Amino acid sequence: MAKFWNFVFFQAGWFACIIGAANNQVLWPVIACLLYLAIHIWRSEHSIAELKLILKALIFGVSADSLIANLGYLNFQDAWPSPYLSPFWMWTLWALVASTINGSLSWLRGKPLLGAALGAIAGPLSYEAGIRMGAGSWGVHGQLGGLIYLAIVWGAAIPLFFYWHRRHIGTSLEQDQ
């Protein structure tokens, strides 16, 4: 049942952030997502490992999105905290994705090729949906280039997040002994 709710809260958070960004109202969606993430980490069997995974995924995502935007392939609605970084609401979405690794996406554990394929398809489609809902736009280099870069990023992200999770759980189990 926890995996079901993880999926529901991820989807609700995604829609709230996208709709909020499209309407320049991201404060409450971000606060709600951060509250969910705090509860998710607190309830996790390996809280420290879960927090480390979310922080690494956050750094990965902010770096990737900021690079793609600065290369001119993607524009976000809302430039806070900086016009050179992806917006804070996107940071929240990366953290939400990381929260699914040990939750609703756990069925991908041990299947890196399937995870890469899913990431390379679902990641760019998620951005396309967000853009169509008004949370951003394709940059000066157009949609195709942006989708290709996003497919590469997300194709690497999902297997990498599982790898990080496995490493953190192993470290966490060793410290418990």
Score class of each variant (00 low, 15 high):
Leu27Tyr: 04
Tyr127Trp: 02
Ser44Val: 06
Arg132Thr: 11
Arg166Gly: 04
Trp14Ala: 13
Ala95Asn: 08
Trp14Glu: 09
Ala151His: 10
Ala49Met: 04
Asp78Ser: 15
Glu50Lys: 06
Ala38Trp: 00
Ala64Thr: 12
Pro159Phe: 07
Leu160Ala: 12
Ser126Pro: 03
Gly115Met: 09
Gly145Met: 03
Trp14Phe: 13
Lys111Trp: 12
Ser104Arg: 08
Ile148Asp: 15
Phe161Met: 15
Ile152Phe: 14
Ala98His: 01
Trp94Ile: 06
Ile48Glu: 15
Ile19Arg: 03
Ala12Ser: 08
Glu174Arg: 13
Ile48Leu: 15
Asn24Trp: 04
Gly115Trp: 08
Tyr127His: 01
Gly134Val: 02
Gln77Pro: 13
Ala57Gly: 14
Asp176Ser: 08
Ile101Tyr: 02
Ala157Thr: 10
Trp5Gly: 01
Phe60Ala: 07
Met133Ser: 00
Ser63Phe: 14
Val30Cys: 05
His165Tyr: 11
Arg167Asp: 05
Leu108Thr: 02
Trp138Lys: 09
Phe15Leu: 14
Leu108Gln: 05
Gly110Val: 05
Leu27Thr: 07
Ile31Arg: 00
Tyr127Ala: 00
Gly119Ser: 03
Ala21Thr: 09
Gly145Pro: 01
Trp5Thr: 02
Trp28Met: 07
Leu34Lys: 06
Ala117Ser: 08
Trp107Ala: 14
Ser137Trp: 13
Cys17Ser: 06
Leu108Glu: 06
Val153Tyr: 11
Tyr73Pro: 05
Asn6Ala: 01
Gly61Pro: 12
Met133Ala: 03
Gly170Asp: 10
Trp89Phe: 12
Ser99Glu: 14
Ala157Ser: 13
Arg166Ala: 10
Gly139Arg: 05
Tyr163His: 07
Gly119Arg: 01
Leu27Asn: 04
Trp28Asn: 02
Gly139Trp: 04
Ile18Asp: 02
Ala151Glu: 06
Trp154Pro: 08
Pro81Asp: 06
His46Cys: 10
Ser63Thr: 13
Leu105Ile: 10
Val8Trp: 15
Gln25Ile: 05
Ile19Met: 02
Ile169Asn: 01
Gln77Ile: 01
Phe60Cys: 11
Gly130Ala: 01
Arg166Lys: 12
Asn75Leu: 14
Gly110His: 04
Ala38Gln: 07
Phe161Asp: 03
Leu34Glu: 13
Cys17Pro: 04
Leu58Val: 13
Ala22Leu: 02
Ile18Met: 01
Ala2Trp: 11
Thr100Arg: 14
His165Pro: 00
Ala157His: 08
Ile19Thr: 03
Ile18Asn: 01
Gly145Ile: 11
Gly123Val: 10
Asn102Cys: 09
Val153Met: 06
Leu105Asp: 09
Ala21Pro: 14
Ser99Met: 12
Arg132Pro: 03
Gly170Glu: 12
Val140Ile: 11
Leu96Met: 15
Thr100Gly: 11
Gly61Ser: 11
Tyr149Val: 07
Ala22Met: 02
Trp89Arg: 05
Thr100Val: 15
Lys111Pro: 08
Leu118Glu: 04
Ile41Ala: 12
Leu108Cys: 03
Arg109Val: 00
Ser44Lys: 08
Ala49Ser: 13
Pro81Arg: 02
Leu173Glu: 08
Ala79Tyr: 09
Ala157Leu: 11
Val97Asn: 14
Gly139Phe: 12
Ala69Met: 15
Trp89His: 08
Leu118His: 07
Ala129Met: 03
Ile54Val: 12
Phe15Trp: 13
Ile54Ser: 13
Ile101Gln: 00
